[in-house]
Each structure stands twice: as C-alpha cells, then as structure tokens.
Simulated scan of single mutants.
Amino acid sequence: MARIGKKAGMIAVFVIAAIALAAGIALAAYVDNNRHGEARDLAKASAACFVEKQVELARTGLGQGRLGQGDGSLVPELWGQENRPPVPALSPTTLNYAEGPDNGPALVLVHGQGMQWEDYARVLPELAKRYHVFAVDCFGHGESAHDSALYSCQAIGQELKDFAAQEIGGPYLVSGHSSGGVVAAWLAANDAEHVTACLLEDPPFFRVTPEEMQAPPGCFVWKDAFEVVHAYLGQDKVADPAVYYAQHSYLFGLFGGLQPKIAEWTAAERAANPDAHLTLAWVPHDWVRGLYFYDDFDVRFAETFHDGSWFAGVDQADLLSRIACPAVYLKAKTKYGEDGLLLAANSDEDAARVQELVGACETIVVESGHDIHYDHPEAFVEAMDRVAGNN
C-alpha cells in the first residue's frame, strides 16, 4: 500500500508539473502575441516584397470640405461654383504608402480611422499574389502629412485620385475600411473613368454625421472615440491622447474595475516607449488594438467627425448612387449592447439603403468585429477576388 501511495504521489507531482508547464507555455504565448503579433504580420508583408515609399502630390484640386489657408477655417464659398475665384497655390503634400510587386491589376487600399497602411499586413501577402497593391496612409495617420487642411472626405478623395493618376496612371480597384470605405466610395463615384471595382469594408454610411451617430439608440464610435477625443482636446492635464482614452474609454468602462489598471499600464508603456506602437503584455491585444497606431495619429482628424466637417459637402445617397462599377459591400454583423447602443458601423436598415443605392452591389455579411480584414483575412481576400472577378 505504501508503494502504491508513493507511486500515486509521484504521478500527482508529474501531473501538476505538466499542468504548470503547459500553463507557463500558454501564458508566454499569450504575452508574446500581445507584444509581437502585429510585428510578425508585418514581417510577412515585408517578405512578400512590400516596400514603403513616399510621394509628393501637387495638390492640384481643392476638394469640397477642404479647409482654408492652414488656419482651420472652412471656405464653403469656393465649393462647387462655376466661376470661382483663383485658389492660392498650395505646397506639395506628402503621401506615405506601401507598394507590393506588380502581379496583376492595381489595387488601392484605404485604411480606417486611427490605423495606417500596416493595418492590412495580414492580407497583403495573399493579395500580392494577384494584384499590384498600393496601401496608403491617410493624412493625419502614419508617415503621411499631418495637415488639418486635408482632414475631410473630399480632400482625401481628391488627393488619392491625384495619387492614382500620378503613380498608377491607369485603371485600378479600390478597397476601403470604415471611414476609408467612404473614401473608396468617393473614388468610385468621382474617378469612375479609372476605378474598375470597389470593395466597401464596413463603412459607416448613414452613421457618419454627428446627428446620425447621436440619434437613438446612439453609436459606439461616438461615445468611445469622438466624445473622448473632443474632451481630450478641451483639457490640458493629460498630454498623451492614448493615456486619456484609456482613462475615459466607454469600452474599457465596460470592464468595471479593470479600467484604472489598463489606464495605468497604458501610461507606463507610453512613458517607456513614447515613439513605439502601443502594446500591453497582460491585456488582450484585440481590446487595445485601436490604440496601437496612436503614436502616429493626429487626433484632430477624429475631431472633424465630432464637428461634422469631415463629411462637409457630401451627400451620402448621391455619392452611393453614382457608383457604377461592380461593388461588394462587406458588412460586419450588426450588434447592440445591453444598453441598446449600436455596436456596429451602421444598422441593418442603413445597410439596406447602401445595397439599394449602389447599382451593381452585392452585400456580404460576416460574423466579425469591425476590422474584417484583420479578424477574418480569408473572408476579406475572397470578397476582393469576388468583386475583381478573380473567382
């Protein structure tokens, strides 16, 4: 009996040790993914021969909603007039982008707010096999110009139209995510001669303006992003917008007592690595991914959604109705919070309007978070191939 007991004890020790080892390995993998997962995705894109570049654009057009002489003032008197007065010459502006190998038709990728071209890293290697990809940094993001005169749909659209003419010089496909999806729609409608197809990835149509976002039941992005940024810009106690967001985030507030700890870790991480993308070892990366690129994000871009100037001069229904090329509308499934808040880019009713207004459109609904190309890269690539006629 003693031998049996001793043997059982040894087995128990081995089992406990094995469990502890497995737990240690799982914890190490969890921390490693939080810290380095994005970098590994980017390394794969680099291995697929993507090269980061910059180009100076001549700024030949003055888009509707473009701001004035660098002082933040709108100049609506110049919008859409036949014989408008001469516009003062504008200095060239820098657009940063990553270009892949020339393996097929040109494809312009436009990321969402708060991101940058690297947000597409998970899908770039596969896309590079059959497209000539140009993934841009929108103005106010990444290494592109941080110039508030360019923080509007019209201005970004016009500059990307100029970019396509200058660097592609022919037909191209376009895909945009979130606010980038609205820009992609603008390009499809306003550069119809060259845009052959478009993929609209979860754009917030009919939930773009301040009035639309605040209409009952309210939108997550208004409470979690635009209200927080507006409050940040109105105070002077917290210098770092990422830290301020962590302290006041609606999302982190849902975690109860964990929010102060996340804010504390964010402040410590930003202080230790002020020029690096934000990663937190102990917080699931998906929870804080919206802050990952905040080191290269001008939050004044977000303020234009709070005051409505980002979408000035654009009529959503008219814009969508002028898209004549084949289109796929890739929508994340609509969800609502326990408090009734819309936890999606827009509602099913809004999505139905998009489908109705875009002539040759196919709507595909995916069970996913907002960033479909990150959460479900295979679904995104399949949708891209579908609208391009590659499957």
Rank of each mutant, 00 (worst) to 15 (best):
I25L: 10
F255G: 12
H194K: 10
N34G: 12
T94L: 15
A29T: 04
F301I: 00
L62A: 15
A106K: 07
E56P: 04
C138Q: 10
W186I: 09
A89L: 14
E264D: 15
A18N: 02
V133H: 06
A22M: 12
T304G: 01
G142N: 01
P326R: 00
S144G: 09
A121Q: 06
P204T: 03
D147S: 01
C325S: 09
L342V: 03
D71H: 10
I262Q: 03
A98Y: 05
C361Y: 04
D348P: 06
V87Y: 15
A8I: 07
G63H: 05
V87F: 15
I4Y: 15
L107Q: 03
S148H: 14
P274V: 00
D102F: 05
M115E: 06
D137S: 09
V182C: 07
V51Q: 13
V136N: 09
A231Y: 05
S46H: 14
V238Y: 13
Q355F: 08
V195T: 08
G63W: 09
L357F: 11
V75I: 10
E56Q: 15
S368P: 05
V15N: 01
C361G: 08
E303T: 00
Y172H: 10
P284K: 02
K44S: 14
L251Y: 07
I25P: 05
L160C: 03
N34R: 06
I372S: 00
Q113G: 14
V87S: 14
N96R: 02
A188C: 03
V354T: 01
P171V: 00
E167H: 03
